[in-house]
Design a protein around this nucleic acid. Structure first.
Length: 680
RNA sequence: GCCUCCUUGGCGCAAUAGGUAGCGCAUCCGCCUUGUAAGCGGAGGGCUGCGGGUUCGAGUCCCGCAGGAGGCUCCA
């Protein structure tokens, strides 16, 4: 998930708040009666998007001006950017030697990069938090001042990074965050003024910045908190200096800050790594290596149910289940073209020497990093007729990728993963329908797992880096157009992702929102016109000619491990019954009812339900507590009253209770909930 | 891969300023048991991630390695 703020759409403020200036004025004057206005959006003659200006900045006559409040996205960005400035001021207060990098707003907050001799410690952050609140309470004025390049260079002589930004002004696009500093048409410096308007007013700090800012630091308020520090490369380039980045969060009010911190806490409670340990689902062991998960029995149930379901669905959708090896001679990946592009993220080759032929060159084998080449070999294992197409091959292909140490994380980024991978081989004229078929199939699979909020991302070639992609411009254009058309027809939002394509073709990926509103990349559909050529795939057309099929890659939920991690977080470990490791836990009120519940559980087991009786010598209340902590969907309780009535009592995870349900009805209800894959 | 921080029994934590490791849960063994989130008692379990170093003495300080977290870069 990206931390960078997505481009904001123009304000949704009603048009009635738009005013046109008749005389020179300022935003502050125009909206003097509106305390919630923090900046204005100014529309020049032919400017549809407008530009954000400080309230105090002089407005010429004849421009359209719209108020921007702190509650709307642009206002929030201004708040956060202003908070970043306060952070920078605080840092230089504490450490005058700190050199300033850039300080843009990001999702939920801001950061500022500094070059300091020593990294920030948690104690430093606390001290900075205090210094920031002092500056905020002081109510310093942000005062904008236009400078020439020469003036800027002179004033910022001690700030090497700012000088560099001045140098790249004009071609700053593509430099992360840099346009926040120098993106405007002219260079500006913001002075932080103490006691503005009084004779004693003093400039206490200044920074090169495009702005705009809140009128006063006081408006930043109580909703600011520094979160963490981390290293970041200057201008995002590994070849550059490593700076110390301080992240903070900023909200219009203390309450909103608290709500945000609560959301973070909830995300932490749901962290699949934590729940994975608590519920004994999976683990990682240093002696195996990072990124290579061990799935425990309870996690194994979830994995198996996922696999059984997806395998069945593929077969229903016309796929053939196949199997391929985990290692191969590396030549295969030269044929496919993967090795030259991704060799450094594949595990290194294993070399085998033939003892009987000591002079023969060693055979190099590679762990499989992708399944498609092997599926191609299945396709080409005999002649294919157009009558057979589409041919759809599917498997749970376990692949190994040498992810860099710093990116391996829980189940969501691993070095060994199992893809629900399929390849459809079609005639070119079938391609659009097949893409549509795969997309709909994928969405229906995700919906059955309880994800319902999607958008699509269209990953295309980066035309400026031709060496990263193979194939003709025409092929790319056709394939991209086809994916885009199908994507648009899906009715879902289609977000462009320039440069995100695989080397062999463009792709559509499904992004799903989870219960906390976070988006995860799920499956993909990739259009490949390269591998069929490289493998010489062909089919016999109706006229007897040999034609090349189009190959369409698709993974529905991507990797089983990753999707399991996403589901754990989506459900916070409280799985719907069909996925739950234990679906029913029967809890006797006292030992005397063990036998009664064993009989109920036997009836459930006979219907394929994963049910157990808690026969431990814990007392009743403790058993209820254990069942709650395990988040078992159905807890069935039986004591004297239930047994006498031939009934059981349901207890659900939210504490809801339903007493005296006849056993036969209880069984049917549970069976139905599992069958219908509903959450209970 | 790079930067910062972290690593104490299965899990969650504690151990003043270096003085020789404790608690809760879980586990095991007893006793107890009739209605909705912890019954009681006892026992076992740790070369404090690994390897060096400083010191009379290291969980505490220093170096290296591994693993983890966050971030940067990357992600077929």
């Amino acid at each position: 998930m990206s931390d960078v703020v997505p481009p904001q759409s123009p304000s949704s403020e009603p048009a009635s708040s738009l005013v046109t200036t008749t005389t020179p004025t300022t935003g502050a004057e125009l909206f003097a009666d509106r305390k919630d206005v923090v900046v204005v959006r100014v529309f020049a003659a032919d400017d549809a998007d407008g530009e954000l200006w400080d309230l105090d900045r002089a407005l010429p006559a004849g421009v359209r001006v719209e108020p921007v409040t702190i509650q709307e996205p642009d206002g929030l960005m201004v708040l956060r950017h202003s908070a970043a400035h306060v952070l920078a001021q605080a840092v230089q207060q504490v450490n005058p030697d700190a050199k300033l990098g850039i300080g843009p707003p990001v999702r939920d907050g801001f950061y500022y990069d500094f070059d300091t001799a020593t990294p920030f410690t948690p104690e430093d952050l606390k001290a900075l938090d205090k210094a920031m609140s002092r500056i905020i309470r002081e109510g310093q004025t942000f005062r904008r001042r236009v400078v020439t390049e020469e003036e800027a260079r002179a004033e910022l002589a001690a700030e090497p990074y700012k000088l560099e930004l001045i140098g790249i002004k004009g071609h700053a696009e593509g430099t992360e965050g840099a346009d926040v500093e120098v993106g405007g048409a002219e260079l500006t410096i913001y002075d932080n003024v103490r006691g503005a308007g009084r004779e004693s007013e003093t400039v206490v700090w200044k920074d090169l910045c495009r702005g705009p800012h809140l009128p006063s630091t006081r408006l930043i308020g109580q909703g600011v908190q520094l979160m963490r520090s981390a290293a970041a490369y200057w201008r995002g380039d590994q070849a550059n200096a490593s700076l110390q980045r301080v992240y903070g969060t900023a909200w219009p009010s203390k309450d909103e800050l608290k709500a945000y911190l609560e959301r973070l806490a909830e995300a932490e409670r749901r962290d699949h790594r934590k729940i994975g340990v608590e519920q004994d689902l999976f683990s990682f062991h240093p002696s195996i290596g990072s990124g290579l998960p061990l799935i425990h029995p309870r996690g194994g149930v979830i994995k198996r149910v996922m696999e059984d379901y997806v395998r069945q669905r593929h077969i229903e959708e016309g796929f053939s289940y196949v199997g391929t090896p985990h290692i191969t001679k590396e030549e295969l990946f030269y044929t496919s073209g993967h090795l030259p592009y991704y060799g450094d993220t594949m595990f290194p080759a294993m070399e085998f020497h033939d003892d009987d032929h000591p002079d023969a060159p060693a055979q190099k084998y590679r762990l499989k990093a992708m399944n498609c080449p092997m599926h191609n070999l299945i396709y080409s294992s005999r002649g294919r007729s157009y009558r057979e197409l589409p041919i759809r091959l599917f498997e749970f292909g376990t692949v190994y990728r040498y992810e860099k140490g710093g990116v391996v994380q829980g189940l969501t980024r691993v070095r060994g993963l199992t893809q629900d991978d399929s390849h459809s081989y079609v005639m070119p004229e079938q391609a659009a329908d097949e893409v549509k078929h795969l997309l709909n199939f994928m969405l229906s699979v995700l919906r059955d797992f309880g994800l319902n909020d999607f958008y699509l991302e269209l990953s295309t070639r980066d035309d400026s880096k031709p060496d990263k992609f193979v194939g003709s411009d025409e092929d790319w254009a056709n394939a991209t157009a086809l994916l885009e058309k199908v994507g648009r027809e899906s009715g879902l939002d289609l977000v462009p992702d320039p440069g995100g394509a695989a080397f062999y073709g463009p792709k559509i990926s499904v992004q799903a929102k989870d219960a906390l509103g976070r988006t995860w990349q799920m499956g993909t559909v990739q259009y490949d016109f390269n591998q069929p050529a490289r493998f010489g795939l062909e089919y016999t057309a109706p006229d007897g000619s040999r034609q090349q099929p189009v190959m369409i890659h698709s993974a529905k939920f991507g990797s089983i491990e990753r999707f399991m991690g996403v589901l754990i977080e989506h459900y916070a470990g409280a799985f719907p019954a069909w996925l739950a490791p234990v679906q029913v836990l029967a809890v006797p009120v006292a030992e005397a009812f063990d036998g009664y519940l064993k009989d109920v559980v036997a009836q459930l087991t006979a219907r394929g339900i994963r049910a157990e009786v808690d026969l431990s010598d814990d007392r009743f209340a403790k058993k209820i507590r254990n069942a709650s902590k395990d988040k078992v969907p159905f807890v069935l309780i039986a004591g004297g009253e239930d047994a006498a009535a031939g009934a059981v009592s349901f207890r659900y995870r939210d504490g809801r209770q339903e007493n005296g349900v006849p056993v036969a009805e209880a069984v049917e209800r549970i069976v139905a909930a599992v069958r219908d894959r509903v959450q209970v």
